[in-house]
Design a binder for these strands. Structure first.
Length: 567
RNA sequence: UGGGGUGUAGGUCAACUGGCAGACCGCCGGACUGUUACUCCGGAUGUUGCAGGUUCGAAUCCUGCCGCCCCAGCCA
């Protein structure tokens, strides 16, 4: 189940454009600077299907965008205006171009089109904005520089650092797609450019024009020999300097800290994990059903909810979980999930808690506790695999030791709560059966394994009312926690749900909850009750583990903690 | 909500037993043609968290308050 690779069926990955008529797929190795005079929307590329060509003619980028086509941006060096070429409509494969050069060195328009064996998302030769938006002014992205070697381009971005040595100066620029060093030789730059360089400060917005040059000394392999620079917006006394800062200072400046390399890397791993979650469930036929944030009834237990006035209906609460609602939608669709923010007014001040965090909660009809864990296992394997495959650079930036992640594969070890207690006691712990496991207990258990660990069947008393009683041991319920390795602790909590109306009602009363608030939830057992299970995966905890960062507050752009509501 | 720690320049931190408020980074000025946390020279920068107390004298000792950090509980 694990390690099965892409959740998309293999057959869907075959290019369906006419570009692969040869039937041969090859990776693209040529250098392309699609900026030559021949680059015009009205000219079709040799080998393109007539249909795509027609689409290009008279079809501005926005029309192509609306129709879902892929567009590729390029810039005419003659007119300076961007032009757009539709390169594919339904393919999930990258379709890069090859170019030839004339003897004079000017890149000509693509002669032929080839399919590339890389997938659309991972292909290094498919810069993202080709399927995105048109830049406000003709601008080359740093990530695209490899395609523009020898060409004169204009970059827009923000100043990371400047260095000057009297007759030569260096500017490290970032634009959201990467970093590049721009070199300013004093004698060769445009008039006034040297002085303008001197006025640049950290994080000033700039436009730099120069020639793209491959250089072994450059971290990304390419540099810009700059001919001109223009500051488009100043930045005075940027607070986050290249020196060290304390955590409270950094979180007070979180809106700026997000620009730093490591924070960018974390955000991209998070993005990858979120997308991977959606891909995973989509490929397996789950329907995403969104659950309310404002709720009247209560998720698990009162007291730790954020309350707000709700017109004439009294108090509304910010959702602690979407679970009760996905149980309802599971009866409509079979397999569903929700993914959104949840809120806990717990006064927790640990490295594993936020008051607002994102949770993915699948719910599956006709799936028992065993099947539930199998899905959790597959999901975690897939998320780790995706991060390793597509966010390798980011994990490297974060100095994450990849070996523990590479070891993640199914099946995961499983241990019952009762066995866990026995093991802890054997190791000298004074924990007694019936008490919930603490953070230290979890770490002690998980350290025996280099994979995530399932701990199953906790005592009924310490778990929520909706969990199904274990028929083999009625003191316990059919639930599981999933503990991440390396001391990261619980990232998933799941259970088979109580599907018997009377037993559920009894549990509600036992825990002192008001049955009236749960009338609609009990209805699900009155009208075609069904075996079902589900779980909640904490996004920030998962991202923190994959990134190897010590505190989950860095795994979300703007963390909400008990003492932090700003920025 | 408990337990522990901490608060000094824009930032990170020193300041011995109560005795002149300091360093580095950053910033400003200058030098330097391949730097990449460049280097070198010079300069500016303070309500020592707040309020009170002890003392000839308090960043330092005492009382109260506030902020932040770590740990625990609760949980994802």
């Amino acid at each position: 189940m694990c390690g099965s690779g892409s959740p998309v069926p293999r057959s869907a990955g075959r290019p369906r454009t006419s570009t692969t008529r040869s039937g041969k797929s090859s990776s693209w190795t040529g250098r392309c600077a699609p900026t030559g005079p021949g680059c015009s929307p009205s000219r079709s590329a040799t080998g393109r299907s007539a249909r795509a060509t027609r689409r290009t003619i008279g079809a501005p980028w926005s029309a192509a965008w609306r129709s879902g086509s892929w567009v590729r941006a390029s810039r005419s060096t003659m007119s300076g205006t961007p032009c757009w070429r539709v390169i594919g409509r339904t393919s999930s494969r990258c379709i890069p171009t090859t170019c030839t050069r004339t003897r004079s060195g000017i890149a000509k328009r693509p002669r032929r089109w080839r399919a590339c064996s890389n997938s659309r998302d991972s292909c290094r030769f498919t810069p993202l904005h080709r399927i995105g938006y048109p830049p406000a002014v003709p601008t080359t992205l740093i990530a695209d520089l490899r395609h523009h070697e020898g060409a004169t381009v204009t970059l827009q971005g923000w100043v990371v650092t400047t260095r000057s040595s009297g007759k030569i100066a260096f500017l490290v620029l970032r634009d959201g797609t990467g970093h590049v060093q721009c070199v300013f030789p004093k004698k060769e730059v445009a008039e006034g450019a040297w002085e303008r360089f001197g006025e640049l400060t950290q994080e000033a917005a700039v436009a730099v024009t120069g020639t793209v040059r491959a250089d072994d000394r450059a971290p990304g392999g390419f540099e810009l020999t700059a001919s001109d620079v223009r500051m488009t917006a100043p930045s005075v006394d940027y607070p986050i300097t290249p020196k060290e800062h304390g955590t409270s200072f950094l979180f007070e400046h979180r809106h700026l800290w997000l620009r730093s390399r490591k924070q960018v890397a974390i955000a991209r791993v998070r993005h990858e994990v979120e997308q991977a979650i959606h891909d995973f469930f989509y490929a397996r036929g789950f329907i995403r059903t969104d659950t309310p944030i404002l709720t009247g009834s209560i998720g698990e237990q009162a007291g730790e909810l954020f309350a707000t006035e709700y017109f004439d209906l009294g108090q509304a609460y910010l959702a602690q979980t979407g679970q009760l609602y996905v149980e309802a939608t599971a009866a409509a669709h079979g397999k569903v999930y929700c993914f959104g923010p949840t809120f806990r007014a717990e006064k927790s001040k640990t490295r594993r808690h936020l008051t607002e965090f994102w949770m993915c909660e699948p719910e599956m009809a006709f799936v028992d506790s065993d099947g539930n864990m199998a899905v959790q296992e597959a999901l975690i394997c897939y998320l780790v695999e995706r991060a390793l495959e597509r966010r390798h650079e980011e994990l490297k930036e974060l100095e994450r030791d990849l070996a523990p992640l590479e070891r993640i594969s199914g099946p995961f070890p499983r241990i019952t709560y009762t066995d866990a207690i026995a093991r802890l006691q054997a190791e000298g712990s004074d924990i007694e059966w019936g008490r919930d496991l603490g953070a230290d207990d979890e770490t002690a258990l998980a350290k025996h394994y280099d994979k995530p660990l399932f701990v199953m069947n906790y005592p009924k008393e310490v778990k929520a009312f909706y969990m199904k009683e274990n028929p083999d041991d009625p003191r316990t319920v059919l639930n599981n926690d999933c503990l991440a390795p390396e001391g990261y602790g619980e990232i998933i909590g799941g259970s088979q749900r109580e599907d018997d109306h009377d037993l559920l009602l009894g549990r509600i009363k036992e825990q002192g909850l008001d049955p009236a608030s749960y009338a609609w939830y009990l209805d699900l057992r009155k009208y075609g009750g069904f075996v079902h299970s589900g779980f909640g995966l904490g996004l920030e905890r998962t991202v923190a583990w994959i990134c190897g960062i010590p505190h989950i507050r860095e795994a979300i752009a703007f963390p909400r903690q008990i003492h932090r509501l700003y920025p």
